[in-house]
Measured scan of single mutants.
Amino acid sequence: MSGIALSRLAQERKAWRKDHPFGFVAVPTKNPDGTMNLMNWECAIPGKKGTPWEGGLFKLRMLFKDDYPSSPPKCKFEPPLFHPNVYPSGTVCLSILEEDKDWRPAITIKQILLGIQELLNEPNIQDPAQAEAYTIYCQNRVEYEKRVRAQAKKFAPS
């Protein structure tokens, strides 16, 4: 494992614990031996107030490669969400998460999670990743928002 990646992720964890947006979660997972795995984080993004996503808490896994922060983490909703920019596998399609697009090593975990929260309610229809959600979003916004509200209710924190 890269010392650069681990040191950056340790800084990220410290900064997150000191200050993070209300309702968001970002925690490194534990290895079988109980030690912390900084390369694999369990996160959760709350649906934004005043949107059909409100009330939901959407679980996301963030996986970092050894060359982080040169390369972005892979962000994957578990379980996958109904959304035009979420692949059926759950992987998020967002330009700041793509090395050859808008990724920059200075982007923080907090910025990534806030960017994904923004994307939930403002899909990028130029870059669809899920045919069904994309089609319904474009053709029947009322039905799309109904499905999103049902999903938010399903993923409401207990």
Rank of each mutant, 00 (worst) to 15 (best):
P28I: 01
L57S: 11
Q126K: 12
I96Q: 06
L113P: 07
D33N: 05
W41K: 06
R141I: 12
G115I: 00
E99T: 05
Y144C: 02
L120R: 03
F82S: 02
K48E: 08
I45V: 14
P105F: 00
P80C: 06
V25Q: 12
G56C: 00
E12F: 02
P52Y: 11
H20I: 05
K30I: 10
E98W: 10
P73Q: 03
A150G: 12
Q126N: 10
P69F: 04
A44S: 08
A5G: 14
E143G: 12
S89I: 14
C75E: 03
K59D: 08
D19P: 05
K76T: 15
P123S: 02
G56M: 07
G23L: 06
L6Q: 11
K14D: 03
S95H: 00
R8G: 01
Y144G: 04
K101Y: 15
A156S: 10
E122L: 10
L119N: 04
S158M: 14
P88Y: 07
D33P: 01
T108G: 10
R141L: 10
S89N: 06
R149N: 09
S2A: 08
E132F: 06
R61F: 11
A26Y: 01
I136C: 09
G47D: 06
W16C: 06
S70I: 14
A150Q: 15
P105C: 12
P84V: 15
P21Q: 00
L60F: 15
E145Y: 12
N37I: 09
R17W: 04
I45S: 06
S70W: 09
I96W: 03
Y87A: 03
T29C: 13
P46W: 02
D66G: 10
F58L: 03
H83R: 02
K30T: 07
I109D: 03
K76Q: 14
L38P: 04
L9H: 01
A44Q: 01
T51E: 02
I136Q: 11
Y68H: 07
G23Y: 09
F155I: 09
Q151G: 06
G55S: 10
L119W: 10
K153V: 03
E132I: 06
R61W: 10
L119E: 05
L113F: 06
N85G: 01
R141V: 10
G90D: 06
S71N: 10
Q151D: 03
R13T: 00
K153Y: 05
E145P: 05
G50M: 01
C43I: 01
Q151A: 03
E118M: 10
M36T: 03
L119M: 10
Q11L: 13
K30L: 06
W41M: 07
P21Y: 04
I136H: 07
L38C: 07
E98T: 08
L97Q: 05
A26S: 10
N85C: 04
A44F: 02
A15F: 12
F58T: 06
C43W: 06
L120P: 03
W53H: 01
P80N: 13
T29I: 11
C43L: 04
P52W: 11
I125S: 08
P46C: 10
K30V: 10
P52N: 15
L94I: 05
L114Y: 12
L57H: 15
G50D: 06
R61S: 12
P46Q: 04
V148N: 00
L63S: 14
E42Y: 12
L81R: 04
Q11T: 14
I4K: 06
R147E: 10
K76F: 15
L81Q: 01
P128V: 00
R61Q: 11
K59C: 13
K59E: 11
N124Q: 00
R149P: 05
D66L: 12
T91A: 15
L38F: 10
S70Q: 07
P69I: 01
P73G: 00
L97W: 10
T108K: 14
S95N: 14
G50K: 14
E98Q: 02
A106Y: 05
D67Y: 10
K154Q: 11
A152L: 00
I45K: 01
P21S: 05
I45N: 04
L114Q: 12
P80H: 12
T29G: 12
